[in-house]
Amino acid sequence: MAGDRLITPDEARQMLRQIYSADGEINLRDVLRRNASDPIRPFTEKGRLRPGTLLVISGAMLFLLIAIFLYFSIGARG
C-alpha cells in the first residue's frame, strides 16, 4: 500500500481484522483499565495500577459536588 492514496473500505476491514486477530482476547475490563490508568507510568513499583490524573480530579470534583448538594439540601435546614 502506498502512503499517498486512500484505502478502500475492504482494505480497512482487512487491516482491522489483522489487528484484532493479533490480539488474542479483547476484554472490556482490560480496555477500561488501560484507559483509566496514568498514560505516563501506568503501574507503580509494586505492579499496581496507577489511576490517571483526570480520573482522580473528576472523582474529587464529583465528591465535592455531591457534598455541596447534600449540605444545602439537608444541612441548611437546621
Rank of each mutant, 00 (worst) to 15 (best):
T8N: 00
A2C: 04
T8S: 12
G24Q: 07
L16S: 00
F63C: 07
I66R: 04
R17K: 06
A2H: 09
T8A: 08
S37D: 03
L32I: 12
G59D: 07
A67N: 06
M1Q: 02
N35P: 01
R17Q: 06
T8H: 01
I40V: 15
L55H: 02
D10T: 01
S58P: 02
L32W: 01
R13S: 00
I40Q: 14
M1R: 06
G75S: 10
M1V: 03
L32R: 10
I40M: 13
T8G: 06
S73V: 15
E45F: 06
F69N: 07
I57E: 15
R34F: 07
A2M: 06
R5K: 11
G47R: 01
G47Q: 03
M15E: 02
M1S: 11
S37F: 03
L49C: 05
I57D: 13
I57V: 12
P51K: 10
S37L: 07
Q18S: 07
L54V: 12
L49T: 13
G78C: 04
S73Y: 15
R34A: 10
L70F: 13
F63T: 13
G24K: 06
E25V: 09
M15P: 00
M15C: 00
E45L: 12
L55F: 05
P51H: 07
R34I: 05
I74Y: 11
Y20C: 04
P42C: 04
R5E: 13
L55I: 09
R41D: 14
E25F: 09
R41S: 11
A60Q: 15
T44W: 04
Q14T: 07
T8Q: 01
R77G: 14
R48N: 11
P39H: 14
R5D: 10
G59W: 04
I57L: 15
R77D: 14
N27P: 02
F63Y: 12
L62I: 14
A2V: 06
V56E: 06
L65Q: 03
R5T: 11
L55Y: 02
L28W: 02
F69Q: 05
S73E: 08
L64H: 09
R48I: 01
D10C: 00
P9Y: 01
Y20A: 02
M15W: 03
N35M: 15
P39I: 10
A60S: 14
G75M: 07
E45S: 15
F63A: 14
G24H: 04
G75L: 12
G24W: 02
P39W: 10
A2Y: 05
M15N: 07
A60M: 15
I40T: 14
I68C: 04
L16A: 01
I19G: 00
R33D: 13
P9E: 10
R34S: 06
R41P: 02
V31K: 04
R41M: 12
G47Y: 05
N27K: 13
R13K: 05
I74E: 14
E45P: 07
Q14P: 00
L62K: 12
A67T: 10
